[in-house]
Write a protein that binds this DNA or RNA. Structure first.
Length: 994
RNA sequence: GCGGAUGUGGCGGAAUUGGUAGACGCGCCAGACUUAGGAUCUGGUGCCGCAAGGCGUGGGGGUUCGAGUCCCUUCAUCCGCACCA
């Protein structure tokens, strides 16, 4: 081979790997396992851009490295194939989403294969494949059949719960249930009085009808159906999860979202809140990511306190993190949606209160958010009795209390909470100080401008806890409340149950049918329940989900099947388990497979999954752990978020000549109204109504650090993107008149210089890489030009894996030069192999072993960019040494093979080895080769480095000191001054203090 | 407002444990080869200065023989959350 030819080499070895199934892996107990996983992609229609493979390359390098280190590596890939874009495309074109999805997957696969990844494709999963989603449905059935027992702190069978009900009723049951289910449950189905708080006896259970029993059990199931306030997106015809909604608009598509009450399937994720929180301490994730999850789970310790409502039987339960401040509670506030509002409001307040409630209900979250500063509320006319001092305090309703958090009711302590304070001031309610800091005196609350921080201090105005420390006061108050049955110690979580229904077509059907209006799970042997064909992918005329269009969407016995489908995160919550045994038709995965592969040793993906996928998948895994199906409670031992690669958009400064004409009543109106020209101006020239427009990056030239658009490229742009048809690069004459008119000065020579050659400069802007910004760089073109090895190394060379960084194609040349330079160590200009068998010398061995050490250290700490630098240093030095020795080069390419596998395989076989560098042993590091006899000490005076001095490494500190002071060059810096101290750090530094 | 992260040349970045700041690459400058150069090779390149030398890791202060690294303070940018009781 004359020249380095990446096309030939890469195609050759990719074929070789595929043909030999080089990366197929099986459980092998003679080797330690290592499981490396990438978050699988959604195969979009636009294919991969350069940002996508960043994490895949890093994980592939790590996988290949681990293989060289003797590990049995599981490194699979698959596709998150359900999703909205394919469905939207189906709605628009009538093409079945599976056809679109298959096509997109095929394209992704081609692109991935060209980068040379070492995936075991035999284990590929696709979430939309019935063979895969059979197990998603199966897991759902298990969730439906289980409840959470707080006594054993795990999920247990509903059958066992039924047995308990049959013998003892539910008085002793300690389960995670839907809060206050007994208040909202249909009275016909559950005929007991409200003050029973949902407690029934064994006999009462036995007397219930089948339907009543099912209704009751629904409050316990881990997958349950309930009326839920949801984010309804009418444009998409579906419900969205909180994290799929951004500022009241859908994250995908940007359609408006409103709140609506609907019957929805939910997963009782909240049952696992504490375990999800505790588990974070056992796993190696970025601290920032753990913090996000901790915040999302939102544990807060505190107390529940009962307030009697004056004149009613009802107790009003509130949650507070500061029960010690009870004596400072001067009013109460309910959320407008609170179920007691209507009941307790006095007739004279009814109109105002109902108006407020109505108003709050109809206001979108966005409006509520926008008015955070505005204080609103209404007095209900009712009073609560403070349980610690019997004080009568007014009950208000206000927006700032949320239904979904705590009990939807608070005791307001205006002296020590800023929102309560603002509310009290606004409505002129009393403010009582109950905490004072050490060494301070209480002051008149009338004079305050804001609430007083009460995290630390002593209690005042607080009955029997006066004088106590905040910490002790909390304990004492809770003890008192519990002893007098006025409240109890409790913990609250922000984490909500996950809504699991989507009114869409392209998702997993629920394995659920309805009998007498109640849902039942299908038999497991009926799975998978395959997605039916429909005539259109839209909701029905009556607003039912698309599956309602399917003919015969009923069980064999004629019972109607559920028409909702599962959300995107259903299929991705357990895919990592299926990879362990992905061709198993009898089980989700076998016990043996799970016990061998256990958990993911390294999980790589974007941080956008911090609170969605990574919470749901942990929940899913914990549930299967409770069932004894998986052996590790936490599925992702180590997780790294790779940064996003941003695009560079090219911004043109443009002016629409018509808008200029309008704004300054300019001459020259367009002769043909259909040909209004938009002129592209140099960035420095400003005219009224100038706009910034993004120009497609593929037609932009980069010279001398600047971006340019030429006239000939503009023509090409117009051919590809008709929206630019009326764009022209402005000539001097085009805008001379406008300029003169607007600025009342001549268009000078300096400015004229911009218009030579009809070329215009564009300004770069770093932003998200996206088709809509015309800044997408496609890996295919780069691989065609430079090869996959260069592409892989360049992506790593860009910077630390976790950083977000802009893509700069220019720098790839440097890596390409490195690859070619490496090739030159093997072949001369004439294409003659010049590798020789001579014994390596000391210098060559030193470079090699320094590189071994550095590469190993860097890869172990996921510092791939510095490893690439070291390869460059090594090749540069070997080139300088004119080293063409087989013994050195062979070891170097083993080191390099995880990064640039194709050229490594090629050169490996060129040296006469059997093909298969993927499974050789990683080159051993030998300290002997890098030992030095001397060290070149940097000598500083008063901390400033002045010169270097070479000294033997075994020289004693005293001798070094003498040598430095005797050194001629030192005299200049000492210059008659007293040497106060000489610091010698062996093999580091010498510092002389004068 | 709360939580987290990041600030180092013209640019991406390096400096792993307090010990030579700017590795490696891009870009730029000069030169060689060449019909040509957007190929290749050689040398240079933090800033100021002819030099000696001085100044330099967002700003200010501190600890230390010595600080990009540790502490305090402040500013800026980015990300996440947002009336969470």
């Amino acid at each position: 081979m004359v020249e380095y030819n990446h096309r030939e080499i890469e195609e050759k070895w990719q074929k070789f790997w595929a043909k030999n199934k080089t990366f197929k892996c099986e459980a092998d107990h003679s080797k330690p396992k290592y499981y490396v996983l990438d978050m699988f992609p959604y195969p979009s229609g636009t294919g991969l851009h350069v940002g996508h493979p960043l994490g895949y390359i890093a994980s592939d390098i790590y996988s290949r490295y681990k293989r060289l280190k003797g590990f049995n590596v599981l490194h699979p890939m698959g596709f998150d194939a359900h999703g909205l874009p394919a469905e939207q495309h189906a709605i628009d074109t009538g093409t079945h989403p599976s056809i679109t999805t298959d096509k997109n997957i095929k394209r992704y696969r081609e692109q991935l294969d060209r980068i040379g990844f070492s995936y075991d494709w035999d284990r590929e999963v696709r979430t939309s494949d019935p063979k895969y989603y059979k197990w998603t449905q199966w897991t759902f059935i298990q969730l439906f059949k289980h409840w959470y027992n707080k006594k054993t702190d795990k999920a247990e069978l509903i059958e066992d719960l039924v047995k308990e009900f049959e013998t003892k009723g539910n008085a002793e049951t300690d389960a995670v249930v839907t809060p206050y289910w007994y208040k909202s449950i249909n009275k016909n189905l559950f005929p007991f009085e409200e003050d029973r708080e949902g407690i029934f006896t064994a006999d009462e259970w036995k007397d219930m009808t089948e339907k009543q029993k099912q209704e009751m059990l629904m409050n316990y199931r881990l997958a349950y159906l309930s009326d839920t306030m949801v984010n309804w997106c009418s444009a998409l015809g579906t419900v969205l999860a909180n994290d799929e909604v951004k500022d009241c608009f859908s994250e995908r598509g940007g359609h408006p979202v409103e709140r609506k009450l609907m019957k929805q399937w939910s997963l009782r994720v909240s049952a696992y809140a504490q375990r999800l929180l505790d588990g974070l301490d056992k796993i190696d994730w970025f601290e920032s990511l753990k913090e996000m999850q901790r915040y999302w789970i939102g544990r807060s310790e505190g107390g529940a306190v009962f307030f009697i409502i004056k004149g009613f039987e009802d107790k009003l339960e509130v949650f507070t993190t500061r029960p010690d401040t009870l004596w400072g509670a001067t009013f109460m506030v309910l959320a407008p949606e609170h179920e007691l509002v209507e009941k307790i409001t006095t007739p004279d307040r009814k109109e105002a209160v109902m108006k407020y409630v109505e108003c709050a209900k109809n206001r979108s979250e966005r409006e509520r958010q926008a008015e955070t500063k505005k204080i609103t509320g209404e007095f209900t006319g009712a009073y609560g009795i403070n349980p610690v001092n019997g004080e009568k305090i007014p009950i208000w309703i206000a927006d700032y209390v949320l239904t979904g958090y705590g009990t939807g009711a608070i005791m307001a302590v205006p002296a020590h909470d800023s929102r309560d304070f603002a509310f009290a001031r606004h409505f002129n309610l009393p403010i009582i100080q109950v905490v004072v800091k050490e060494g301070e005196q209480p002051t008149d609350t009338q004079t305050w401008e804001d609430s007083y921080d009460s995290k630390e201090g002593k209690m005042i105005n607080s009955g029997f806890i006066n004088g106590l420390d905040v910490k002790d006061a909390i304990k004492s108050t809770i003890k008192y409340l519990e002893e007098n049955e006025l409240g109890y110690d409790t913990v609250n979580y922000r984490l909500r149950d996950a809504i699991f229904s989507r009114q869409r077509y392209w998702g997993e059907p629920f394995p659920i049918y309805y009998k007498d209006g109640m849902p039942y799970a299908l038999d497991e042997n009926k799975l998978p329940l395959e997605l039916p064909e429909v005539d259109k992918y839209l909701p029905t005329e009556t607003g039912e989900p698309p599956l309602a269009r399917a003919e015969n969407w009923v069980t064999e016995d004629g019972y109607p099947l559920e028409t909702n489908t599962m959300p995107g995160f259903a299929g991705s919550s357990g895919y990592y388990l299926r990879y362990m045994d992905s061709r198993n038709e009898k089980e989700y995965f076998s016990r043996e497979a799970n016990e061998y592969w256990r958990d993911i040793d390294l999980y790589l993906g974007g941080d956008e999954h911090a609170t969605g996928h990574l919470i749901y998948a942990r929940f899913w895994n914990m549930f299967l752990y409770d069932l004894g199906l998986v052996c590790e409670e936490e599925p992702f031992k180590k997780l790294i978020n790779q940064g996003k690669i941003q695009g560079i958009s090219n911004i043109a400064n443009v002016v629409n000549i018509e808008s200029v004409s309008h704004s300054i009543e300019l001459f020259r109106p367009p002769e043909d109204i259909n040909k209004i020209i938009t002129y592209i101006l140099p960035p420095e020239i400003s005219l009224p109504n100038c706009l910034s427009i993004r120009m497609p990056i593929e037609f932009i030239n980069f010279e001398n650090g600047k971006y340019f658009l030429t006239e000939s490229n503009l023509k090409k742009i117009k051919l590809k993107y008709p929206k630019y048809n009326n764009y022209e690069i402005a000539s001097h004459e085009d805008i001379e008149d406008t300029w003169k008119f607007f600025y009342n000065e001549p268009f000078d020579d300096y400015t004229k210089a911009y218009f030579i050659n009809k070329e215009v400069e564009l300004k770069p802007l770093v932003e998200k890489m996206s088709k809509t910004f015309y800044n997408v760089i496609n890996p295919d073109d780069l691989i065609e030009k430079y090869g996959a090895d260069t592409f892989r190394m360049y992506e790593m060379f860009l910077g630390p894996l976790e950083n977000h960084k802009p893509w700069d194609t220019k720098g790839i040349e440097g890596v390409y030069r490195f690859i070619k330079k490496l090739w030159r160590l093997f072949y001369d200009e004439k294409g003659k192999l010049i590798v020789i068998d001579d014994k390596p010398n000391e210098k060559e061995l030193k470079v090699l072993h320094q590189t071994i050490r550095k590469i190993q250290e860097d890869i172990e700490r996921f510092s791939f960019n510095t490893a690439v630098s070291q390869f460059m240093i090594c090749v540069n030095e070997l080139t300088d040494l004119k080293c063409h020795k087989k013994e050195i080069l062979e070891k170097l390419i083993v080191l390099l093979s995880p990064y640039a596998p194709h050229i490594a395989e090629e050169l490996w076989s060129v040296l006469g080895n059997e093909p298969g560098i993927s499974y050789v042993a990683f080159t051993e590091f030998n300290e002997e080769y890098i030992k030095e006899n001397t060290f070149e000490y940097p000598v500083s005076f008063n901390g400033k480095m002045r010169f270097k001095l070479e000294l033997p490494v075994d020289m004693s500190k005293d001798d070094i000191e003498k040598a430095v002071l005797a050194e001629e060059k030192s005299q200049k810096y000492i210059a008659g001054k007293q040497v106060r101290k000489v610091i010698v750090v062996p093999k580091k530094i010498i510092n002389v203090v004068v």
